[in-house]
Design a protein around this nucleic acid. Structure first.
Lengths: 219, 219
DNA sequence: AAATAAAGAGTAAAATTTTATCGATATGAA
DNA sequence: TTCATATCGATAAAATTTTACTCTTTATTT
């Protein structure tokens, strides 16, 4: 009865639309409306929702409050989890300053770096801490999630260290595939992957419109 | 004969491993090795590669050079494409300063923002330009790709403007599903989506280890 | 109150993606 | 040279995911 990964991936988008709808004063929303907003197939939306077990009312749709609550719960976003960042470079700093994580139940509580120049400087509302203080911090604050934003060359060693300190979930922004023990979960967020899809789709689209052009020539 | 999206998404990882292997002096690499490095199924890797039409040698593997070239070409990363960023906030600035895009055939050439305070300031090696200068810049430099890093509330209007200026591909970092004409491609890169997967996998993993604990108790 | 239409729910079909199987081939060792 | 082994390639099977279809429900209209 586990929820398919593609469905999980669509859940955050649903939450976004649900919030919007709620703010505009609505109480119910139909799968059709959700689908329209997101450019999805309504049947797919209904199927996704059905995996939560929530039932809708014909002709009306789903209770926004109920749906929001359930999806938030499935994602585990109803309880705030503390996380720390390792790597105070451009990306790490941007993430540290980003204030949108609260709605994902994620709270950045510290940022670490090995560079002596960066340690002690401020990034957003944090002061960069040294790698030496990492272990104690994780233990003292019972941190289970870490965000890796160091260069690829250092990612594995940082990862190993984090695992040794007891981190269970790693959100990896370094372009590197990390090896971790079975008990640890890694999720990589890779700009390259995303851009690859854009590149290919764009090339295809341009090829199509070229085809169209030549078709027109033939008239 | 189009290449499946999941395959496209794995291509950048292959490229990374291929580069590593090349740097360490190798000429050939087997699907098995690639798969091991990436935690994938070797059969899947072979299937992915087969979609490029490149043939390998039994017992040896694939020509690294040839494979690299072909994948790079399929992704369209062998020709550099100029792109601009709209939104000079934390994320936009981080992206502007990121120097890893060169290997994706992507070259950031300018960054725009509507805030009077930001216009004229420096971000990395760029000077933030005004939104008024956007149209002319796109036309003069024949830009076809734009990166959107504005807040969600402004994303659609910025998107509309970009489309009007002739942009064909949009890489959207705003948590908002953009509506565009058929001729335009949008790729959203969403932190929430990625984190959702991490959240759920982690919860599952922790539940599993709890199960294990209770199993052990039963001995 | 009956008819209509806009959903939802459940099952089935289709499409896509991943994994398995088996025969072929090239290398290195006996 | 022959044999063992690692790997490839092609086809088939399995699994997953998306889409279609049919029926039911309920608000709205007449």
């Amino acid at each position: 009865m586990s929820i398919p990964i593609p469905t999980i991936k669509r859940f955050p988008s649903y939450l976004r639309i649900l919030n919007q709808a709620k703010e505009s004063g609505k109480t119910y929303i139909s799968a059709t409306t959700l689908a329209e907003e997101l450019g999805l197939n309504p049947i797919q939306v209904r199927k996704d929702i059905s995996s939560t077990g929530i039932e809708g009312k014909p002709k009306i749709g789903f209770d926004i409050q109920e749906l929001t609550q359930y999806i938030t719960h499935v994602l585990g976003w109803d309880n705030t989890t503390d996380a720390l960042i390792v790597g105070a470079g451009n990306l790490g700093s941007a993430i540290a300053r980003y204030d949108g994580f609260a709605s994902y139940g994620l709270k950045i509580v510290a940022i670490f770096d090995k560079s002596a120049e960066k340690i002690g400087t401020n990034v957003g509302c944090f002061t960069v801490k040294s790698m030496e203080s990492l272990n104690k911090f994780i233990k003292d604050n019972r941190i289970s999630i870490a965000v890796i934003t160091v260069p690829a060359s250092q990612a594995q060693s940082v990862c190993d260290l984090l695992v040794k300190c007891g981190i269970r979930g790693i959100w990896n922004f370094a372009p590197k595939d990390l090896k971790v023990p079975q008990s640890v979960v890694v999720q990589r967020t890779d700009l390259a992957t995303s851009f690859a899809v854009l590149s290919v789709k764009l090339a295809k689209k341009i090829a199509e419109s070229d085809d169209l052009d030549s078709d027109e020539d033939m008239i």
